[in-house]
């Protein structure tokens, strides 16, 4: 009972701990319910060759990244060099989902900043974006050989996230049957 005066202090520290934890959470990162679920089916025209469509089934059998981007997206410029650099290592194919963009703008953007994508598919009305639960560009999905979404990066891919989170997951998935 001697230490009774410490009770308010302990309560305060507990509250401060909760608040500190809450402050460090990012409310923009809404966990996706699609993790470990099959990726939604799509079939969309390709940016460079609008007559040819790319569908989810075309990517079956390999581990790949789907990067949602747009020429109007400021944060995409920030992550773009990271993607260009990563693409040159040819670890996995990166498919771009050009989200609610104008194709001429998108093509000019790729000319200017480099093209890390095997191909980009055009989601002009954002319908496929909604199917993937996209709410803030850029977003990046890691999809396994069976077409199941295994990881989602919300916001720009940073070198740190790539090295410490995404690459280990890629290696693990590539090792799997």
């Amino acid at each position: 009972m001697k230490a009774k005066f410490l009770v308010p202090l302990a309560l305060f520290l507990l509250l401060a701990g909760f608040l500190a934890f809450g402050l460090n959470l990012n409310p923009r990162e809404v966990p996706s319910p699609l993790i470990d679920k099959p990726a939604p089916a799509f079939s969309l025209p390709q940016l460079q060759v609008p007559d040819t469509q790319l569908s989810l089934d075309d990517m079956k059998g390999q581990v790949w990244l789907l990067n949602v981007w747009a020429s109007w997206c400021v944060a995409c410029r920030q992550e773009h060099p990271v993607l260009v650099d990563f693409a040159s290592s040819h670890v996995v194919p990166i498919i771009g989902l050009n989200y609610k963009d104008q194709s001429p703008d998108a093509l000019r953007w790729l000319d200017e900043f480099g093209n890390p994508y095997v191909t980009s598919i055009v989601d002009a009305d954002g319908r496929v974006g909604i199917d993937f639960g996209v709410y803030g560009v850029p977003e990046t999905f890691l999809i396994d050989k069976q077409g199941v979404i295994r990881f989602k990066q919300i916001g720009p891919v940073t070198p740190d996230a790539l090295q410490n989170v995404i690459l280990p997951k890629i290696r693990e998935l590539q090792g799997a049957a």
Binding site: P31, S32, P33, L34, I130, D131, F132, G133, Y135
Partner: peptide
């Protein structure tokens, strides 16, 4: 919508 964006 919940299937795509979660309970959020």
């Amino acid at each position: 919508l919940v299937a795509r964006y979660g309970d959020f």
